[in-house]
């Protein structure tokens, strides 16, 4: 990393209008301290992203000479039904899984915010799904949904919902549900933990006052908890949305995008083309995903700002 100082000094020049006083020695040292950070992020995140954006404008296929084609890959994506199916899946997945996970997480957080015996243990246990790699979670749920002997069909039978085993991963709807449930298992804890911290930050005496005012449990939640939790709620929603948009691991393992591509996310579509040596096309798909993430982030920041003022 001999050239690490470069991004830092660039940064300084960009940030420093001419009439500012010169930097103090501490500030110069500060930029030196930040330079490895900028170096790593620049070399292994920013440049790759820019490289991918550039590559999306090329016909970059492993067995052909590279050729500039401008927006040809995007035009091909536009005409590709599997692209639209992936966009639809990604959007639907965000719309269903994020609210579900945040609601579930809020429920868990509300429970864990109350004092009860063994609370510490329960709080520790919700970290377990979070700590398991998503790819491993995908494997566990692949077995859960196994047609012949999986736990899901066992439960259906046990709860007398259906005697006939259900081919979970065999229809668009049930495969979608299967993915949502597996993802909810893996990521709800994250939402719960963040929201729990948000709840804990609400001063206790506010509730005390409300109790004096005879406000019921529900009223207290609506008028005190929810408004005060809003900023944290928005942050949680933002994090979860960004993560849900880029879902890959669980789907790759659990459904492989099936049946018939019904559960293929944009990340999967892009990876599939990379793996087949079709880099330009895959890059174009990841650029679209990247833009979707940017739009989502901006939308949340807007909402957040709006709430503050």
């Amino acid at each position: 990393m001999t050239r690490d100082h470069r991004p830092a000094s660039d940064f300084r020049q960009a940030r420093q209008p001419a009439r500012r006083p010169p930097l103090t020695r501490d500030q110069v040292r500060g930029f030196w301290f930040l330079s490895p950070l900028f170096g790593f992020i620049g070399l292994f995140i920013l440049i790759p992203v820019l490289g991918t954006i550039a590559d999306s404008l090329f016909r970059d296929i492993v067995y052909l000479p590279v050729r500039f084609v401008f927006l040809e890959n995007f035009r091909a994506l536009w005409a590709d039904p599997s692209f639209w199916s992936a966009v639809r899946f990604s959007a639907l997945f965000v719309l269903v899984s994020v609210p579900l996970e945040v609601l579930l997480g809020l429920g868990i957080a509300l429970v864990l915010n109350e004092p009860f015996a063994l609370r510490g243990w329960v709080r520790a246990c919700i970290l377990i799904p979070w700590a398991i790699p998503a790819a491993v979670a995908g494997r566990i749920f692949q077995l859960v949904y196994n047609f012949s002997y999986g736990a899901a069909n066992y439960l259906l039978d046990l709860l007398s919902i259906s005697r006939e085993p259900l081919n979970w991963l065999g229809s668009d709807l049930s495969a979608f549900i299967a993915v949502v449930v597996a993802d909810a298992w893996q990521t709800t804890p994250f939402a719960a933990i963040i929201l729990l911290a948000g709840l804990a930050a609400i001063p206790e005496d506010l509730y005390g006052q409300a109790k004096v005012d005879q406000a019921g449990m529900v009223a207290r939640f609506r008028h005190i908890t929810l408004p005060l939790l809003k900023p944290v709620l928005i942050v949680t929603l933002l994090f979860r949305t960004i993560q849900a948009l880029r879902i890959f691991d669980i789907i790759f393992v659990l459904t492989g995008g099936g049946p018939g591509g019904a559960t293929e996310s944009l990340s999967m579509l892009a990876y599939r083309h990379f793996a087949a040596g079709d880099f330009g096309y895959g890059s174009a798909a990841s650029v679209v995903l990247f833009l979707m993430a940017v739009v989502a982030a901006i939308a949340y920041v807007r909402v957040g700002r709006f709430q503050e003022t």
Binding site: R15, P48, F248, Y271
Partner: peptide, 28 residues
């Protein structure tokens, strides 16, 4: 500690970067 100009924006930019989807890095 070192009173860096634009400290808060730096933090926010870094946070923003963490939101890039990994699939947009892997081919490069």
């Amino acid at each position: 500690r070192l009173n860096i100009p634009g400290g808060r924006p730096i933090l926010l930019i870094v946070l923003g970067i963490s939101m890039f989807p990994p699939v947009s890095l892997i081919s490069y």
